[in-house]
Structure formats: C-alpha cells, structure tokens
Write a protein that binds this DNA or RNA. Structure first.
Lengths: 260, 260
DNA sequence: CGAGCCGTTGATGCAAATCAACCCCTGTGG
DNA sequence: CCACAGGGGTTGATTTGCATCAACGGCTCG
C-alpha cells in the first residue's frame, strides 16, 4: 500500500508502457477525464446505465467498484464484468446507440461522463489514443470470450477458481499485493457472475478453502496457494506457463503473502 | 444503427449506411482488401489462426464459412463465433500480440491477410474507418455478452433456439431469405457453441422440430415459425418487440417462406 | 447490543451428461 | 445409376452435478 508505486492503470501497467511514442493508458484516462462533460457521484447499488436505454456517452469509473450485467426476465441478473477505478464502462462507439447492458455501483463511486461528440473529436484528433481505446475494446472482448469459455462445460470448481484468479491477477497487475484483498462482492455476486446458485457457490468456496487454496468470505479475498488456484482453474495449456510466470513475478513483490 | 438490442447482427448492411459522411461497412472491407498483404486459400477444417501463437495481423474472411473457438484441455472446444463472408477475424490492435483464440474453416475459404503495419497506417490515415473497426470490436463484445447471458441459467431449449435465431437473423440481415438456409454446421458444432452435449442438442432439435418451430438437419436450416422461435428463445423483454419487427420486415421480403 | 444481511448446511429433485448401439443420409467411386 | 462406406444423426438407460428450498448460524455495522 505504501511503497508500491500507484499505477492509474486498470490493466497490466507493463502492457501500456510508452514504446514508440504511443499513448499510455494513463494518458488515455487523462484525455478522457479532461474532455468529460460531467462528474456523477453515486451511492452503492445505484445504476450507472440501464440496458435498453439510449447511451451514446462513455462512462469512466474514476473511483469505487461497479459491475456490468444483463437483467433476466425473471428478475435474475447475469454479471458480465466487475469494474474498479480506471475502468471504462459503456463504450458504444456509435451515435444514438442503446445500452446493451446495465451497470450498477457496488460502493460509493465517482463517474466521469464523456459525451459522444467529445469522444468522436478525441478519436479524430488523437489517433494514438484511438488505437489504445481499440486495444481496450479488444481486451474487453477477449475477457468476454474468457467468460463464454468458463460457462461451457466447465465445472463449478473451475468457474469459481477462474473468477477468483481473475480478480487476483487484476489486483496484482495494479500493483496491489496485500495478503488480503478487499473486494466488495457477496457470494451472490459470485453466483451471478458464474451462473451458479448461491448455495453451490458457497459449497464450492468451502471446498477451495478446505483445500487450502483460496478464501473468500465477508468481502475479503485471501490467496493461500496461487499455484494450486491456477491448477484448480483448469488452465493447463500453453497459457499456464505465462500465468505462472506472472504469478511468480507477483509473488516476488513486497506485501505479497503467498507461501513458497 | 436503429435500436436493435441483444441480437442485432453481424454484418447488417443497413447498419453501415453512410450517414453523416462516416465510413460504410463496404468501404471498410474495401479498404482492408486494398491493403491486404496476401490472400490465403484454405480447405475445410484448416486453421486460420491458432490460440497462443503470435498474431499481429487482421484476417478478413473474403469467402466461405469459419468458426472462432477456444480449445479446451481435454480436446474439446468452445465455439465463440461463427463467421461467414465479410467477417473480420483476429483483430488484435496491438503489435506483437498473441492470438486469444483459434479460428478454423468450415468450408473452402479465402482469407485476406492485412499486416499490423498496414493496419496501423490505415488507422492513422482514415480515422473514420478506425471508428468503424472500433464499433466492430464493441459489437463483437456485445455478441460475446449475449453468449454469456445465454449460458447462464438458461435452458437447453432456449440456448439452441437463440443460436438458430441468431443464424437466421444474420442471414436475413444480409438479404438472404430462402425457405431453406444452407449452413455448414453439424450438430456437434451447435453443441460446442451452446455448451451442451451432442446427444442433448439432438433431443432439443428434435423437440423444436416436433413443435413445428424450426428444423436443423444435414446442414440445412428451415424456419417453420419465426414467432414461436423468438418465444422459444425466451426473449420476452423490451427487445422482443424490436425483434418481432425485424422478423416481420424479413417476412415481407421476397423468397421468405414463413407462414403467417 | 441488537438487527439484518450474509453465509452455511442438509434433503430432495431434475436437467443434462455420458455411453453405447443403431440407423439414416449423403457423397464417393465403380 | 447403383453400391458401399463413413460420418452424422437418433434413441435409450443410467448417472451426476447443480438447482431449489428451507432452516439455522455468525459477521458486521449501526
């Protein structure tokens, strides 16, 4: 918390290093914040945007936590994405678009709203920023593909493990490596994000805890054995090595409490 | 685009009409074909790109059918997207990226390859084309979100109905309205795309057929009752009306054989 | 210190997986 | 044009993972 350099990045800071004069992620966020039309402050549980309503603005989550979801007919919801500080929500690069999803805060949050006009101007005047945003969209799409993969023929254990792994790697990519992560999610959120029932999520979390892999309770995430978590996530292909490298790198940083 | 929520289509020509001097989809495809580095011809079942290998080029499917997928550890695969003529595959707007998915042909196909350098140049010189490509990525993500929604707590019947509906609307958005659509998919592909077993896909298709809703057999898709298909897909929210409008529009076109 | 949400656990039911055997289309080569 | 081979589709018996529902227990925050 103290020593670790605070990156403004949502994503791997390394990923956005300024090579060959291209825009860094920080610059993109700054550019967006500069051209913001307004700043909204929301309490937990309030809607940032709503599925089916017109939305031709970009919403940048300046502070707080939120989640992106699709409401279902029967009152249930499917969580598509969790978002924290620095995340762009509701990027519809078309005029007069309607929101394809809803977004709701999990904690007190601040949101910068950038209107489509401003955005289009930005796109034309700063093509490097545009490329970065396209890269961001590409990454979001890949994350969505991850979700699809997780939902198909994957066991409950793997689904939950994948989600927790994702949250962990996300936090560590931001330079936060505490023993214990504070993430404002309930088991019901995990259920909505994995497509499982709360009962089964609980059982699965209990199993992972009893196996000494990971603990998630009362909005606290504790990684006990990252290697086993990766295994539990069922990632054994070519991506496993990369992942373990990232993990090793993270483990070597200060304030990271994983045992050897 | 007009407000066509969840299931709007892949390459809706109408969607890309030139309003306010912006790039049409046709122009984007032409621009890409012009700056192509090479043209590949592939037979059915060959790989266009492979998960985990370097890929900093854009692949444009000039002719034929293909599908985008993630391989699973146990030899299974999750199909993320079906693609036909005019679809852009493998759009990673970053240099030295690795492919986050594989893509494989379903029929004889031609692929135009646009290298990253050419692409970056295009991005800088024609920002309107860039915006279109960003919109494409955004739409791909939304389609992936559709898939996630379909996978969560949705019955097999609904999943299969949604996929067939998507294929139908895609074809009709392209102006093809025959009684019978030729789509080079087996039931195993449907299974991989819906996360079901082939056995259950078969039973579900049989049920839909016996209900007089839709037939899918031997690579032929026949819509018997589009209204009921929409109902079977379980889309009853605000998007249902729009969808039924699209359907009615399609039904009024020549060569469309849906009974009243 | 209490209320209420969150997490925990157990009993029961069902939707879909699995596996195996069979049948039917379709496109091939004679 | 027919025969044959093989992939794709069909069907049934059995198993299983997860949903559902209900009741209880323990955090945490006001």
């Amino acid at each position: 918390m103290t020593a670790a350099p605070t990156h403004d990045d949502k994503l791997c800071p390394e990923e956005w290093h300024d090579t060959s004069g291209r825009a860094t992620w920080t610059r993109v966020v700054q550019a967006l914040e500069r051209s913001k039309s307004s700043l909204r402050k929301l309490r937990p549980g309030e809607d940032i945007l709503t599925f089916g309503t017109p939305c031709d603005a970009i919403h940048l989550l300046v502070s707080g936590w939120a989640y992106v979801f699709r409401p279902l007919e029967d009152g249930q919801q499917v969580i598509l994405q969790f978002a924290d500080r620095g995340t762009i929500i509701g990027f519809h690069p078309e005029p007069n678009a309607t929101a394809q999803y809803s977004a709701r805060t999990l904690s007190n949050s601040t949101i910068a709203v950038v209107s489509y006009d401003h955005f289009e101007l930005l796109f034309k005047e700063a093509p490097d920023v545009a490329i970065r945003l396209a890269a961001l969209l590409s990454r979001d799409r890949n994350l969505a593909f991850d979700s699809v993969t997780s939902f198909s023929r994957i066991s409950a254990r793997q689904r939950v493990a994948r989600l927790l792994l994702q949250l962990t790697l996300h936090a560590s990519a931001q330079g936060a490596y505490p023993k214990e992560l504070s993430i404002p999610l309930t088991q019901e959120h995990i259920a909505d994000a994995t497509g499982l029932s709360t009962g089964h999520v609980n059982r699965t979390l209990g199993e992972l805890r009893r196996n000494g892999i990971v603990e998630f309770q009362y909005r606290k995430l504790r990684i006990l054995n990252l290697g086993d978590l990766i295994t539990a996530a069922g990632i054994d292909g070519p991506s496993a090595k990369t992942l373990r490298d990232v993990a090793a790198q993270a483990a070597s940083r200060p304030h990271w409490g994983v045992s050897p």
